[in-house]
Design a protein around this nucleic acid. Structure first.
Lengths: 120, 120
DNA sequence: CGGTATCCTCGGAGATACTG
DNA sequence: CAGTATCTCCGAGGATACCG
């Protein structure tokens, strides 16, 4: 999803938020400042490379800020920007919608509707 | 993004909504009932195969409904379910957030912040 | 520690053709 | 018309190694 097929802002947001990591990273950053290695610990299955790429993408989108400290070893901190913070409740709403959509009984990790397809 | 790495509902929604098409399809369906071929016209660049796959995914998630009519040639209609309709304003909110995030002046099709990375 | 570069693979997604 | 089945290919993303 590198290119856009529409001029729709929706498609543009999704370009940034699509995938497993963006929303998860935003969520971990909600708790406050995190370092690169913190985020790796929070997301044990993300690869080194992907983490940098995803962080860069979010930074470019203005959702997170990157602060580099002088000295050795390197020390970098990531934070949500104010723009990023305003995104959090929207993501929350999606999560709530989902939980309601699949019903309170629904097993996590599994899609909801047993789907009886209607035939007329 | 086939598997989940967390038990977080956020990750589960994103699994369904990630990618270029899901939100766009939901948007076109917002206008009312659409047939398969209508959706292809709306999204000229989506492939036959992808359209069926994406529609199936949304159907499985309970966001859209599929109604098949008897007769020949085949006739199938897609609609948002009530669950899907409740999703629309949330997606709208994301679009609004994005437009505000990148600023009213921002050129579409391009990321926003000129990014001067902070160094301390 | 955080980031970049290189290599390699595996599956997402296009093209095409066929069926009910 | 809507959907499925094959084949194919390209690139997202993992593993590894090296640098400031």
């Amino acid at each position: 999803m590198k290119t856009l097929v529409s001029r729709c802002p929706i498609e543009e947001v999704m370009q940034v938020l699509s995938g497993r990591w963006p929303t998860l990273l935003i969520y971990y950053l909600k708790d406050g400042t995190k370092r690169f290695s913190d985020l790796r610990r929070d997301n044990p299955t993300i690869s080194h490379k992907m983490l940098t790429l995803e962080l860069r993408k979010l930074e470019d989108a203005g959702i997170i800020s990157r602060t580099e400290f002088e000295g050795y070893p390197l020390h970098v901190e990531y934070d949500l920007t104010s723009v990023g913070e305003r995104l959090v409740p929207l993501i929350d709403a999606l999560g709530d919608w989902w939980e309601e959509a699949i019903g309170p009984d629904a097993p996590h990790n599994e899609f909801a509707t047993p789907k009886s397809r209607s035939v007329t």
